[in-house]
């Protein structure tokens, strides 16, 4: 299939009408599941993700517990119906790799030594995948951790930058990801000015790489503010109750 796919319209817009530096519509909610200690739901375009945190709790099996800090367990997992061609149940190699990079990103920011000999478990479930799942996943996980009251240095938010027909775009859609020349997911803790997750799949020049970082930064700042808003909305005040 050597078809050339044109991913831009005549006026330079992307196929879904977005500008080069525009993200898809985002929705974030905290405290959406009842049984866990913290939870969040994030939508980015058609990508839909639940994240839940249990912990700190007893490490299982006990011999894995660390004497001076908590261990962080993480799982990035996709529902079979989350993608166009049904994904087999169980963990694929891709899910295992993404679990690792997300876990390492979150670990960087949590004060693990506050809870020796225990475990903090983070579960990310992708109910519908439409590109950007690992970055939206770490964004949701960070929210769920904050909801659970796990002490952290900062929240983290992530977004991907793609390169399509030579142009850098923020938050590639599934097609842009599929037919583009590069895809760079990145997650940051903005207040600390630190990157916690960074991968590149494809080819970029140094200049393009620097530009991509700046483009991502803008998206991440927007997501960060939405995270803070979602967390603070739990404190919304109520009206005066009816007095009998």
């Amino acid at each position: 299939m050597c078809e050339v796919v044109n991913l831009f319209t005549e006026d330079g817009k992307r196929l879904d009408g977005r500008g080069l530096d525009e993200m898809r519509k985002v929705r974030m909610e905290v405290g959406v599941l009842d049984k866990c200690d913290g939870s969040a739901y994030v939508e980015l375009g058609r990508t839909k993700i639940f994240a839940a945190v249990y912990g700190p709790r007893e490490a299982h099996p006990r011999h894995l517990a660390q004497p001076h800090r908590a261990i962080l367990n993480c799982r990035y997992h996709m529902a079979t119906f989350s993608v166009a061609d049904r994904k087999p149940a169980g963990m694929t190699r891709r899910e295992i790799e993404l679990t690792k990079v997300i876990k390492e990103g979150l670990e960087t920011l949590i004060f693990l030594d506050e809870f020796p000999r225990s475990a903090i478990d983070v579960f990310i479930e992708i109910m519908q995948a439409d590109a950007g799942t690992r970055t939206a996943g770490i964004t949701a996980a960070s929210l769920a951790l904050a909801d659970a009251g796990i002490p952290m240095m900062d929240l983290c938010a992530g977004i991907a930058v793609g390169k399509v027909m030579g142009k850098l775009i923020l938050d590639p859609s599934e097609e842009e990801d599929k037919y583009g020349e590069a895809d760079m997911p990145i997650a940051m803790a903005p207040r600390l000015n630190t990157i916690v997750l960074l991968q590149l799949n494809g080819r970029l020049t140094i200049a393009e790489f620097k530009e991509a970082l700046n483009l991502a930064r803008k998206g991440i700042e927007t997501l960060y503010e939405l995270q803070r808003k979602a967390l603070k909305s739990k404190f919304a005040s109520i009206e005066e109750p009816e007095v009998e």
């Binding site: 049984k35 639940f50 994240a51 839940a52 799982r75 579960f123």
Partner: peptide
Amino acid sequence: LLPLASRSFEP
């Protein structure tokens, strides 16, 4: 039984 759902569900 997703581990999100309950303390007693393991991944």
